[in-house]
Simulated assay, not measured.
Amino acid sequence: MKGPAAQRAAAHFAGRLATGLVEVADLTARPEALQRGWWAVVATFEGAITGYRFADVRPAALPPARVPWVRPGRWTSSMSRQDYVDGVLRIREHIAAGTVYQVNLCRLLTAELPAGADPLALAHRLGEENPAPYQGFLHTGTDWVVTASPELFLRRTGDTVLSGPVKGTAAPGEPFSAKDFPENIMITDLVRNDLGRVARPGGVRVTSLLRREDHPGLQHLVSDVQAELRRGTGWDDLLAATFPPGSVSGAPKHTALQIIRELERVPRGPYCGAIGWVDGDRGTAELAVGIRTFFSTDDGRRVHFGTGAGITYPSDPDAEWRETELKASRLIAAASGVGGSAASAGVLSA
C-alpha cells in the first residue's frame, strides 16, 4: 500500500514496533489471511474484525510523539446517570424473569479533538500514568486505537489458548462486593464453555480462579482458562466460539447481547471488542479485551472511551454507576491532562 495514510500507519504491541503497512483485510470474510504474516487486529464489539498486515516488525520502544498530546474538549456520555440506573433496573427485571443471569451494561464517553492531535502522545501518557499488561497502539493511517487493557482475551501458541476473564472491581484497599465472586465464577464458566466448543475432549482447564490483581487506581478479580484446541482449528472457528468476550457481554451470551442492543444507545466499536496482534508465520497471537481503550473516528477528530459494569440481580444501580466512574476516572483525567479524578477536575459533562 502507498500514500500518506499508509505512511502514517504503525502498530506497537508487546514491545514490538510494526511499520510498512502492506495490506488491510476484512477478517470476518478472510480469516485465513491470518495464517501468514504479522497482523495488528482490531475487532469491534459488534463483530467487524479488521487486520492490518505490516512488513517490518522489530523489537523497539514506542516511537516518540511528533507533538504533545492536546487536551480534548468536554467529554459527554451516551447515557446519563438516570439512563444507566434505569438500565440496571431493567436488567434486574430480565434476571427475575429467568431470561438471563448477568449483563454487562456500558456507556461511551466522547470528546472532540483538534486536528493534528498525535495519539502517540496519548499512548506515552497512558504508559506513564496507567501502565497495563496489554498496552497497545495502532494507527491505521486515518484513525487510531490506544489501549491500556488489563484483560487477556486470547493468547494463542499453536493449539494452546489462554483466556483471562476479569470480573470484579474495587478501589485499592477496599473489599470486593458480595456479588463480585459469584459473578467472576459465572463468567469464567462461560469462557470455559466457549473454549470447549473448539477444544479437544477434556482439553479445557481453569488454571487460576479469583486471583486478585492490582492496577492503577483499582483492583480486579481475574481467572485463567486454558484450552488445547482440536487439530486444524482456524481463527474463524476460534473467534466464532468465543467472540465477543464473555466478560463484557453476559450470560447466557446470546440473550445478554439482545438486552445490550435494547438498552445501549450507540455501538461500542473497538471498546469491549478485541485488540492485539497475530503472527501467522509463528502461530502465536495475543488479543486483549478492548477495555480501558481510547479510539478515534472521523479521521481522528473525535475520541471515544467506554466504561461499564456487570449487572447481576443483587446489583445496586447507584453502585454500578459509581463503578463505571471508577473505571473511567483515572484514564479520562490522564487523557484530559488533569490530575486526580476526571469528575473532580470538571472534564465530564453531567
Rank of each mutant, 00 (worst) to 15 (best):
L152T: 01
F153G: 12
L154T: 03
T157R: 14
T157L: 10
G158R: 00
V161I: 15
T169I: 04
T169H: 00
A171M: 13
P172I: 05
G173I: 02
G173F: 02
P175K: 06
P175L: 08
F176V: 05
A178T: 11
F181H: 14
P182R: 12
E183G: 02
E183T: 00
T188V: 13
L190T: 00
V191C: 13
R192L: 03
P201N: 00
V206S: 02
S208W: 03
L209V: 01
L210V: 06
L210E: 03
R212T: 11
R212V: 11
E213T: 11
E213H: 09
D214Y: 06
D214S: 10
P216Q: 03
Q219I: 08
S223T: 13
V225Y: 07
A227D: 12
E228G: 09
E228R: 14
L229D: 14
R230Q: 15
R231A: 10
W235E: 01
D236W: 07
L238W: 10
F243V: 06
F243W: 03
G246W: 09
S247R: 01
V248F: 02
G250Y: 09
A251C: 15
P252E: 10
P252Q: 08
K253M: 14
H254P: 08
T255A: 13
A256R: 09
Q258R: 14
I259G: 11
I259R: 08
R265Q: 05
R265G: 02
G269H: 06
C272E: 04
C272G: 04
D281E: 12
T284Q: 15
A285R: 02
A285V: 04
